[in-house]
Structure formats: C-alpha cells, structure tokens
Simulated assay, not measured.
Amino acid sequence: MEFFSVFILVVLAMQALNRRGQRERTALLAEHLRPYSIEQSMEQLTHAYLRALDEKDPERQHQIWQLQSPTETRLAEDFVSLATSFSRLAPPLARTPKVSIPYLEKLVPQASFDMRRALAIHAEGIGRAVRNTSLGEKDRAFLILAEMLLMQHTCHWFCRGRAVASARMLARHQTSYDKALASVSARTRNDYLKLINGPALGA
C-alpha cells in the first residue's frame, strides 16, 4: 500500500512538471511568434486553397491562386524572421523532449530535438514551396499546405508533445502526421527525419 501511494505521488509530480515545462515552452514560442502574422497567413491560405479546389470555373480558380501570392510571400518572409529570432536562444531553452518525461531535454539532450533547427528546416521548406514555379497551381498549393501542416505539428509538439500535436492535426485538418510528412518535399522530409530521429538514446 505504501509503495502504491509513493507511485501515485511520483506520477502526479511528473504530470505537474510536464505541465510546467509545456507552459514554459508555449509562452516562449508565443513570445517569438507575436511580431509576425504567421497564423493569420496560414489560415487565409488554407481557406483560399480549399476554395480554389472547390471552384469549377478554371479561370476563377486561377484568379484565386494568383491572389494568394502576397500572402504566400509574407508567410515565407515571416517564417525566416521567426527562425532567425529563435536561433538566438540558448540551446537548453530551444530543446523539446521526444517523450513526455519532465525536463528530459535538459538532462539527456539526445532524447530531445532542437527547435531552432526545426524552424530553420520549415522556413527553408516553406520558402522553396512558395518559390516553386515548376509545379502546376494545384500541386504547388498542396505542397505549401503540407509544409505548413508539418510546421504546425512541430510547433504543437514543441509546446505540448508529439501525441497532442498529431491528435490536433487529425482533428482540425483530417490529416495524419504520416500523411503530412509524406506530402512535403523530399528535402524537407529528409532533413526533418534526420533532426527528430537524431542519435539513439545512449548512442
């Protein structure tokens, strides 16, 4: 009975520490996001792309794609600025655990990934997608959407953990993490997987 009580106390303490770490990371990311209109740009592009995909008139569809160019450019530029701002953080502040163990990122860096590098990868991926003129408008829009969704997943992972991030993506966008990862560019996917997989724990 005494062991069970101690076990419960340990679990409750770990949950409290996890919540504290999540609040700290959420506040940190929110602070760096505040100067930019990234979330607004993403919402506008998502709605516009979906509207264009539903449009039956090819000319009207083309107009919708073309009208998004300023927002796409602003998103790419804002994300480069965000990644640059975040890159100035000290390493311990920029790391997030791969599994929900309180402050694991500080105790065992190999069991975490560096959000500074993750944001740089997403900035590069979104920028490449926005500048890609070799794809048709529909395929280009799908690529930008995929890059945005994977980036959003990373931000939620940094703040709340991987399971919560995946559940949110599925609930809000009816898209799984694996599908988003498979839909981004090969370069983004390779760089991202190399980052989050990293060296094995104890390697």
Rank of each mutant, 00 (worst) to 15 (best):
E2K: 14
F3H: 10
F4A: 09
V6Q: 09
I8E: 07
V10K: 10
V10P: 05
L12M: 09
A13W: 12
A16D: 01
A16Y: 12
A16W: 14
R20A: 00
R20K: 08
G21C: 05
E24H: 10
T26F: 11
T26G: 01
L28W: 07
L28N: 02
L29I: 08
A30N: 14
E31N: 11
E31I: 08
M42F: 06
T46Q: 13
A48P: 02
L50C: 03
R51L: 13
L53P: 00
D57Y: 03
P58Y: 02
P58T: 05
R60F: 01
L67G: 08
L67K: 14
S69C: 08
P70I: 05
E72Q: 15
T73G: 00
R74M: 06
R74W: 01
A76L: 05
E77C: 04
F79H: 15
L82D: 01
S85K: 12
S87C: 04
S87Q: 09
A90M: 13
A90Q: 11
P91L: 02
P92I: 01
P92L: 02
L93A: 11
R95W: 04
T96E: 01
P97E: 01
P97C: 02
V99A: 08
V99G: 01
V99D: 01
I101Y: 07
P102V: 06
Y103W: 13
E105N: 12
E105D: 08
K106G: 00
Q110I: 09
A111Y: 05
A111I: 05
A111H: 04
F113E: 12
D114M: 07
D114I: 06
R117E: 07
R117G: 00
A118H: 14
A120I: 07
A120V: 10
I121D: 04
H122A: 14
A123C: 07
A129N: 05
A129Y: 08
V130Y: 03
V130T: 11
N132S: 09
N132M: 08
T133N: 13
L135W: 02
L135F: 01
G136D: 09
G136H: 08
G136S: 08
K138T: 09
A141Q: 06
L143P: 04
L143D: 01
I144N: 07
L145V: 06
M148N: 11
M151D: 03
W157M: 04
R160N: 07
G161W: 02
R162C: 04
A163E: 11
A163F: 10
V164K: 12
A165G: 03
L170Q: 14
L170I: 15
L170V: 13
A171R: 15
R172S: 08
R172I: 13
H173F: 15
H173P: 00
Q174M: 13
Y177M: 10
A180N: 02
A180P: 00
S183R: 11
S185T: 13
R187L: 10
R187I: 11
L193W: 01
L195S: 12
I196S: 02
I196H: 02
G198L: 04
L201W: 14
G202K: 09
A203L: 12
